Simulated assay, not measured.
Amino acid sequence: MVFVTKYRHKVFTDAHLKRTEEIMRDVCEDFECELIELNGENSHVHLLVNFPPKVALSKLVNSLKGISSRRLRQEYPELVRRYWRAQRLWSGSYFAGSVGGAPLSIVKQYIEQQNRPV
């Protein structure tokens, strides 16, 4: 999955991405999913998530984006004033692709190689 920040603003530092990963791992656990890898750049994140067929992708995405947006805005109020309009962190859209046939190691390597901000 790929989530992009609202208006493609350059929001994230390494510290923000670390906290985002912690939050999203907790959400995945609540859905009985496994967050295999998360990395990103200053305006988006890539997630590799293993989830069972009983989990609706739209509900998982809604929770991942909603909870992470709310918690990050609470924990980093300086970012709210500078970057986030309309009290939203994420763009309304997302990308989700299936990698059932591709080796997970290749997808994981691609995510790990994102140009993570300092």
Results as ranks from 00 to 15, higher is better:
F95K: 09
S63R: 14
L89A: 04
P77K: 13
C28H: 02
I67G: 00
K54W: 08
R73I: 06
Y94R: 02
P53C: 08
Y94K: 03
H46T: 04
L64N: 00
R81K: 12
A86Y: 15
C28K: 00
L35H: 07
F95G: 11
G100H: 08
V107T: 14
V49Q: 00
Q113A: 14
V27E: 01
K65Q: 08
L35E: 04
C28A: 06
R73Q: 11
L48Q: 02
G97A: 13
P103E: 14
A86L: 06
K54D: 08
G66I: 05
V49L: 05
V11G: 01
I36C: 08
K10P: 00
S43L: 09
I36F: 07
V4W: 05
Y110D: 03
Q109V: 02
F12S: 02
K54H: 10
K59W: 05
P103V: 13
L47M: 15
K6A: 13
R88V: 15
Y94I: 06
D26I: 06
V11T: 11
C33P: 03
Y76W: 15
V49D: 00
T5V: 08
L48I: 06
G40I: 01
K6I: 14
G40H: 03
K10L: 10
V45Y: 03
S93M: 10
S43E: 12
L60A: 01
F95N: 10
N62W: 07
I106M: 13
V45K: 02
P77S: 11
P52M: 07
G97P: 03
